[in-house]
Amino acid sequence: METNMKTKVASDKLGVNPTTVQRWIREFDLHCDVNEKGHYLISASVFHALEEIQRQLQQGFTKKEVVLPTEQENKNKAGEDTISKETPTMIETSVFEERFAQVMATVDQLEKKVNQKADEVVEYQVLNHRQEMDHMSEVLTKLEERMDRIEEALTERPKNVVSIEEPKLKKQAPKKRLASLFSF
């Protein structure tokens, strides 16, 4: 690979339009030398960055999601391929621990919010149940009072009320009755 290539050569190698290469250089703020006519002179490290952009876009990433390798990684891959393409990129332990701590802090905050919401829901339900119980207690008290009044009314009988019953007829012997019919 030559030291600096023109846009047309880079676009041919990538299999894209030269304007696409120019757009990627501008959008991803890649540093390229410019010749006297204003054309880009693409270095090997910038070409590697263009390859990475193309690879990620083909995988379905949006332009905002594309992550470019560092300039040092571009130079390593452009010159000596010290890192195999199959080897995953390692991050430092301190960076990992810091990110992990941030994630855990976020999880803790979310857990606190969920617990707070659950507590609020339970509190609301308890207050509603308490109001229902108070209302039922009032209704029960009124029913008890009414039952007491009804029982008092039923157990109190006026003392001056005389029982009205039909007078009992004296039974007369059958002979006397017959005789009374015919007697003058």
Rank of each mutant, 00 (worst) to 15 (best):
L14N: 02
P69Q: 00
V66D: 06
F28G: 09
N17E: 11
N35K: 05
V21R: 08
V67R: 14
V67I: 13
R55G: 07
N74L: 05
E73V: 06
G60R: 08
E65C: 07
V34W: 00
N76A: 06
Q59Y: 07
Q54A: 02
Q58W: 03
E51L: 01
T19A: 14
A49F: 01
D29A: 13
D33E: 08
V46K: 05
E27H: 15
E36R: 14
F47Q: 03
E52G: 03
E27L: 15
A49D: 09
N76H: 04
T62E: 10
C32K: 11
V16S: 03
N35M: 09
Q72D: 12
Q72A: 12
I53C: 02
W24V: 05
L41M: 14
E36A: 04
Q59N: 04
Q59D: 07
L30W: 05
S45K: 02
E65P: 00
K75V: 14
E65S: 14
E65F: 10
L68M: 11
K37D: 09
Q72T: 12
L30G: 00
E71G: 12
I25R: 09
Q56M: 05
V66S: 10
K37G: 11
L57I: 10
R55C: 03
H39K: 12
L41K: 10
Q58P: 01
F28W: 10
N76K: 12
Q59K: 12
D33P: 03
Y40T: 04
W24N: 09
A49K: 07
E71M: 09
Q72I: 12
N17V: 14
L50C: 05
K37L: 04
V21Y: 03
T70L: 14
H48V: 05
V34M: 11
H31M: 15
I42C: 04
A44I: 11
T20R: 06
S45H: 08
L30S: 08
P69R: 13
A49V: 01
L14D: 02
N76V: 11
N74C: 15
A44P: 00
K75H: 06
I53L: 00
L41P: 09
L14G: 03
R55T: 08
I42D: 07
E52H: 03
D29Y: 06
R26Q: 08
E36K: 07
Q59R: 08
Q22H: 04
S43D: 01
D29M: 09
H48A: 06
K64Y: 03
P18G: 09
T70H: 07
K63T: 13
N74I: 02
V21N: 10
K75L: 14
D33H: 13
L41D: 11
E51N: 04
T62K: 09
H48T: 06
V67S: 07
V34Y: 12
Q58Y: 00
E51R: 02
K64S: 12
E52V: 09
I53V: 00
P18V: 15
L68A: 04
A49Q: 12
Q22I: 11
E36M: 08
P69K: 13
T19C: 05
V21F: 08
K37N: 07
T70P: 12
I42T: 12
L41S: 09
L50Q: 08
D29Q: 11
V67K: 01
P18S: 15
R23V: 05
V34S: 13
L30K: 01
L41I: 05
L57P: 01
E52L: 01
D29P: 00
R26T: 10
H31P: 00
